[in-house]
Structures are given as structure tokens and as C-alpha cells.
Simulated assay, not measured.
Amino acid sequence: HQHDWEHEIFIVKGEGIITNGKEEHHVKAGNFLYVPPNEPHGYKALSDTFEFLCIIPAKKEAIPEEEWA
């Protein structure tokens, strides 16, 4: 899949493969990655548990005004 926005991925636990459709990267706990906007990407677990945080930055204009108060 792919999105119009960037995101950062931090591997919390386990091991896996992250792919952009052309290359595969082996990742493990403690690694972090940057996925540019519109970059195809996918994930594959190589361990029983593969946990990661996906962080998507939000621009101020994307958040309703009342939530900034």
C-alpha cells in the first residue's frame, strides 16, 4: 500500500521485513525507518511477535482549531 503522507516506523519488538516493492530490508527491535510520501511499502513478520510504532506527522492545518485550545 501507499499514502500521500510520510511516516516513520520504530520497531519495538521482534524482527521483520519492510519492503518498498523493489528492495527488502531486515529490521529488528530498536531500528527506525522513514517512509516518504507515496512510497509503496509493506511489512512481513519474521518472529512470533513483530510490533512497531507508525508515526504520521500532522500539519497544524490538518487538526481542527478547537483541538489546539
Results as ranks from 00 to 15, higher is better:
A62N: 11
K28L: 04
K13W: 02
K44H: 05
V35Q: 06
S47T: 15
W5F: 05
V12C: 06
G30I: 04
V35T: 05
L33Q: 12
P57N: 13
G21E: 08
I63C: 11
K13D: 09
Y34H: 10
H7W: 01
I63S: 09
E6N: 08
H25Y: 15
A45F: 00
G16F: 02
L53E: 03
A58T: 08
P40V: 01
L46M: 07
H26C: 05
N38D: 13
D48Q: 04
G21V: 00
K44V: 05
L46H: 02
Y34A: 04
G30R: 03
P40F: 00
G21M: 03
E8Y: 13
F52D: 09
L53N: 09
I56S: 15
D48K: 05
K28G: 08
E66H: 04
G42P: 00
I63Q: 11
D4E: 04
K28W: 00
F50Q: 03
E66F: 02
P36M: 11
P37R: 04
E24M: 09
E61Q: 09
Q2I: 05
G42I: 00
G30A: 07
E66N: 03
T19C: 15
K59L: 12
T19R: 12
A69G: 06
K59M: 08
G16P: 04
A69F: 01
E39Q: 07
F10T: 12
E66V: 03
P37W: 01
E23I: 05
H1R: 12
K22I: 07
I18L: 15
I63E: 13
H26M: 07
E23N: 15
E65N: 09
A29N: 10
K44D: 06
D48I: 00
F32P: 05
Y34R: 05
I9Q: 07
K13F: 02
I9W: 02
Y43T: 02
L46C: 03
A69I: 03
V12M: 09
I63T: 11
L53P: 04
Q2S: 13
I63N: 11
E6W: 00
V12F: 08
V27G: 14
T49E: 15
S47V: 07
Q2V: 06
V35I: 14
E23Y: 09
E66S: 03
E24V: 01
A29M: 10
I9T: 14
A58P: 02
H1W: 10
K59R: 07
W5D: 10
L33S: 11
I63H: 10
H7F: 06
V27P: 13
G42Y: 00
I17E: 10
E8T: 13
L33V: 03
A29P: 11
Q2C: 08
V12W: 05
V35S: 08
E8P: 07
H3G: 04
E51F: 02
E65P: 08
P40R: 00
F32E: 08
K28F: 01
I9E: 09
E51A: 09
I11D: 14
F50H: 03
Q2A: 11
E61S: 12
F10N: 05
I56R: 14
N31T: 10
I55W: 01
G14F: 01
K60C: 10
I17F: 10
N20P: 10
E65G: 06
H3S: 07
A62H: 11
H7P: 09
P37K: 06
